[in-house]
């Protein structure tokens, strides 16, 4: 789940990036409204975590711009101003959720998962494909009555594939999920994790599309 974090406080930005990555998200972080605009034109994100008071303007203005441009990107506002009026103003401007500082990382992660679930039109907070139920909150899968554990990176890749079953995700796109812009990408990591996932889920679960990337195999016996 690709997230863009807009937060100007160094410690908090670092904490959000690292913490959300540990929670199975794929976050990128910027400091200013201008950088956020730039990032949003360059890259595709599934949610935006937005601070209100930014050095070059208000997060609300950025949100207004986004909504005016017709974007339905899920936005969670993160701010020290959490009075009733501020919350109402934020939600009315087009925010999908609102969280006051300081907050618990777990709660932020849960709210983001709920946001994404709603955005994807799912009622249950589980990703499901070919008999595998993947629980993003616990980074665990369950198939045929058996729990399957995944490492954080395995989970990140699997979740990326399961969010849009059938879509082909290139190696670069998956690497982006694993690493932030600033991180050094280790070569072959994606291949190693795909290999491990096939060992856990069966070699047919994930297909390789030569020269393009990976996708999930079609469902075998879809229940009516």
């Amino acid at each position: 789940m690709r997230l863009l974090i807009v937060e100007d406080d160094d410690t908090l930005r670092d904490g959000l990036t690292v913490g959300l990555r540990l929670s199975g998200f794929s976050p990128e972080a910027v400091e200013t409204c201008a950088d956020a605009r730039h990032a949003l034109t360059l890259d595709r994100f599934e949610a935006l975590v937005l601070d209100m008071m930014l050095p070059d303007g208000s997060g609300l203005d950025l949100l207004r711009e986004l909504r005016a441009a017709g974007s339905d990107l899920p936005v969670l506002i993160l701010t020290a101003r959490d009075g009733l009026e501020d919350r109402v103003a934020g939600l009315d401007t087009g925010a999908d959720d609102y969280l006051g500082k300081p907050f618990e990382l777990q709660e932020l992660a849960a709210r983001l998962r709920a946001l994404l679930r709603r955005a994807q039109g799912r009622a249950e907070n589980l990703l499901e494909w070919n008999g595998l139920k993947l629980d993003p909150a616990r980074m665990q899968g369950r198939r045929a009555g058996r729990d399957i554990g995944f490492s954080r990176r395995e989970f990140t890749i699997l979740a990326a594939l399961m969010e849009r079953p059938g879509a082909i995700l290139g190696k670069a796109a998956l690497e982006q999920r694993l690493y932030g812009w600033q991180d050094e990408v280790e070569s072959n990591t994606v291949e190693v994790h795909i290999h491990n996932l096939r060992a856990k889920l069966g070699s047919a679960f994930i297909q390789t599309v030569r020269g393009a990337g990976y996708r999930l195999a079609p469902e075998e016996d879809r229940p009516a």
């Binding site: 406080d9 410690t11 300081p102």
Partner: peptide, 12 residues
């Protein structure tokens, strides 16, 4: 904001 940063880093 710094408190939120501290809390997040402590959780990490």
């Amino acid at each position: 904001t710094p408190l939120a940063g501290l809390r997040t880093q402590a959780e990490i």
